[in-house]
Each structure stands twice: as C-alpha cells, then as structure tokens.
Computed example of a mutant assay.
Amino acid sequence: MVLGKRLRQLREQAGVSFEEAARVIEVTPLTVRRMEKAEVGLRIPYVKELLRTYGVAAAEIDDFVAMAREANKPGWWYSYRDVLPEWFKAYVSLESEASVIRLYEPHYIPGLLQTPEYATALMRVGFPNESKEDIARRVDLRLRRQDLLSKPDAPVMWAILDETVLRRPVGGAEVMRAQIDHLIESLDLPKVRIQVMRFSVGAHPGAYGPFHHFRFGFSELPDIVYTENLAGSVYYDRPEDVVTYLEVLDRMSVQAEPVARTRDILGELRKEL
C-alpha cells in the first residue's frame, strides 16, 4: 500500500496520466490504478519502466525495486490460505504491520486474546460442517496471530469489550474461566489495554457492531478501519470515515470502566462462573 501510494505520487509529480502510464507498460489504465491502490501485486518489470518514465534516478529505482520484491513475498499466513477467507487476508496483513490497534467488540473476545479452547468453540459454531482438521487449522492460524503481542515491537492494543462478551458462555464454564484468566494475564503485557463497557452504561455510540482501527508507523499509510459481517468485510481509509470511528472510540473509552478497574472486574466475573 505504501509503495502503491508512492507510485501515484511520482506519477502525479511527473505529470503523467493513467492512460500515458498504461501505454508505457502496455496495460489498461485500470491496471495502473489497481497497482497504485495495492489491489494487485507490483510486477517488477512494470515498476522499473514506470519509474524510468517518471524520471526517477537510477539509485532510487534500485531501492524501490528492492522494496517491491520484499512486498511481493507471501506473508507468514500464506501457508494457511486454505482456511483463510479472501476478505480476511488484508486484515491479517494490516494487523501484522500496525503500530496501534484499537477496537470495540460487542460479541466475542478479540482473536488476539482468545485461548485455544475458546477459539475452538467459536470455530465449531461458525464452521459447523468443517472437519476437525480444518477447525484445528483455523485455530492454529488464530494462535499464530497472537505472537504479535509478545514481539519487542508489538503494537499497542486497546480493546473495549462489551460486558456481554464476558458473560456469553462460549464452550462452557471451564472454558470461560480459563479465558478470563488469560485476559487477566494479558493485562501484564506492556502494550495491552482492556476496558469493559458495563450494561449500566445503556445505549452508547458503538452499539452498531464490532470495528477495529489500525494506525501504522508509515506516514504514507493512512489509518484504516475494519468492519465485518456474515458475508465479508469493509475497509475504510477515507479520513472522514476514519474520524467518525475514532470519535466513537474516544467517547466510548470515557464511558467504559477505566483500564485500572479491568483486573478487578474480570476477577469478579470469574467468581460468578
């Protein structure tokens, strides 16, 4: 995405239109648009020819090409492509590169904080016709994603969980006790923050459904908001859309219980199980 945006900037600076760029590499203008929007891979011969057309110096072309080759390499999740929905691949990629992940979850524990047993129970409900082997693969993918939180450069993860999430019995009492124990342990991670939105708050601005906000360490990459439904997902990167979700997260973080109260709340809920 960063390289695509940079290609667009270089094209515009050179005063080259989509049609002119397309003629240089003998493709349609739509292909050039899709390259700039990161909707297709960056073919190295195309990249080199476009950069020459835009008047980019040879040394900068070499650096750009090296980054393009790196960007074209499959992510670690490529080996799970058999159980990874097409619409969710972008999410895993964004999650892996984010410096800040803020989210609201009204239904279930976020994937990055789930125990294997909790994740398995959810997968059995979500994919009732799949084999045990495929369910195990999906759970393994989810657990691999969790490695992100223990890395030295782990992103800040700030989650607001509806109280429903903690009271909905997924997998039975024993699974829920272990899951809440895991959440309590997760609070010891330096970059994990969890808040609980109590029932007593009543209606609040995030009650429409779950959403996740990503911020990155690249100035070229805009903030992105992710939402999902039964049929797929939507990614928002227009500033006006992202700001709407950020304002909601900010208001909700004030309405929810303070982070300092989370450990006590989780402990109280565990006693009830």
Rank of each mutant, 00 (worst) to 15 (best):
G171N: 07
L149P: 00
T244V: 11
P239C: 11
R69M: 11
G41A: 15
L122N: 00
W158P: 00
Y235K: 08
D162T: 07
H204Q: 11
D63T: 13
S253R: 12
P239V: 11
Y208D: 11
W77R: 08
Y104W: 12
A58H: 04
L161A: 08
L161C: 04
E20T: 12
R11V: 05
G55A: 06
R33A: 14
S233H: 04
A256M: 06
L3W: 06
D250L: 14
E20R: 13
W158R: 14
E247I: 10
L113C: 01
M123Q: 15
A159E: 00
K89C: 11
V192H: 02
S17P: 02
A173P: 02
E49Y: 02
A68L: 07
R69Y: 06
A98D: 03
H213I: 09
L249V: 01
S99C: 12
S96N: 15
S200H: 12
E272F: 06
P106C: 09
E240F: 06
M252K: 01
E12C: 08
E220T: 06
R167C: 03
P239W: 13
Y108T: 07
S150F: 13
E272Y: 12
T31E: 05
R11M: 02
D140L: 14
A57Q: 13
A173Q: 11
D223Q: 13
R8N: 07
A260R: 08
W87N: 07
K132D: 15
R6S: 07
R167V: 09
P190L: 13
Q146W: 08
V234A: 12
Q195D: 01
Q179G: 00
S186E: 04
H107F: 14
L187E: 01
W77D: 03
D188T: 14
R167Y: 12
Q13V: 06
